[in-house]
């Protein structure tokens, strides 16, 4: 469990990126921080691995104040995936994935073996192992980024708009992949995005942020959709324009689901999706609350 207790971050130039934030991030679930640009998402995320230190307040991981931990060591135990992957351009894919293992002193052979396994885990062909990042597509680079984040099998995985720079089809592929991984691995994922649909798709818990890292609403997708806390949340999730008010209309192949703008959003099918991706308004499979 990660806990923020009245955490404030003021940068030297006076910008208050986060103002007395209190937030509990449960273990083995995906918490999504969603909000518009400049709302402090990245800053919040980086306070978890001490890339940013709070001006005041306490950040705890499993009850321990992280201010007392050595930043370099702390970071080696926490996965971090960012937009544009942040891969090291001068290292081959396999070495990029194994970087943190090398840093923690794992023998080269073993580290590389583990890196190859991780390529399978994230659905990357092992043939890419000896390529340099610039020889991969954006989507493939993001997969490498995720594999690298998972290398030391961390309990916590921080993801900062990891799928923000890829096209919608690849993005949706990567999202499904992450849902599958999360079902298998059950990490404590903190995921930053400004895409509310992505938030609803991936999040067990969603924090909608206003400027200054202020939480407008914290809840499950269902809670937020069915009961938006205020106008800000309504407009952010699109319930104010009725964009999420769905109704049925008879179509050629069954009932069409029409959204608030009059566009077909899908067709209504009868079987309930027990396996596979969750969707907005539905909480996913069994989630055990570990640690």
């Amino acid at each position: 469990m990660i806990e923020f207790r009245s955490v404030t971050k003021q940068f030297p130039d006076g910008t208050r990126a986060v103002d007395s934030l209190s937030l509990v991030i449960p273990s083995r679930k995906t918490t999504v921080l969603v909000g518009s640009s400049g709302s402090g998402k990245t800053t919040i995320l980086r306070m978890i691995n001490r890339m940013v230190d709070p001006t005041s307040g306490v950040v705890e991981i499993d009850g321990d104040d992280i201010a007392g931990k050595e930043p370099v060591k702390l970071r080696r135990g926490i996965g971090y995936v960012m937009q544009n992957s942040g891969l090291l351009p001068h290292r081959k894919v396999i070495d990029n994935i194994a970087t943190v293992l090398y840093l923690t002193g794992v023998a080269r052979g073993r580290a590389r073996g583990r890196a190859l396994e991780l390529m399978d885990t994230v659905g990357l062909d092992r043939a890419f192992a000896d390529r340099y990042p610039s020889q991969l597509s954006g989507g493939q680079q993001q997969r490498v980024g995720v594999a690298r984040g998972l290398a030391v099998d961390p309990n916590i995985l921080l993801m900062d708009e990891p799928f923000g720079a890829v096209d919608p089809i690849v993005r949706s592929e990567l999202q499904q992949e992450l849902l599958r991984l999360q079902r298998e691995l059950g990490k404590t994922v903190v995921f930053v995005t400004h895409d509310i649909d992505e938030a609803f798709l991936l999040g067990d818990q969603i924090a909608i942020l206003k400027t200054g890292g202020e939480i407008a609403q914290l809840g499950t997708p269902t809670e937020i959709l069915s009961n938006p806390a205020d106008d800000f949340v309504s407009s952010f999730v699109g319930t104010d324009r009725g964009a999420r008010a769905l109704h049925l209309a008879p179509g050629r192949f069954g009932n069409l689901v029409i959204d608030g703008t009059g566009r077909p959003a899908g067709i209504l099918v009868n079987e309930s999706p027990t396996e596979g991706p969750s969707w907005p308004g539905q909480t996913r499979g069994p989630s055990t609350d570990g640690r």
């Binding site: 691995n49 970071r75 080696r76 960012m82 544009n84 942040g86 891969l87 970087t99 840093l103």
Partner: peptide
């Protein structure tokens, strides 16, 4: 971006300079 990601992976300042 690369510097931030090296930092996030747990390179020390010195290690980051020499290795990255």
């Amino acid at each position: 971006d690369v510097i931030q990601s090296a930092k996030a992976m747990g390179y020390s300042t010195w290690g980051r300079l020499v290795r990255v």
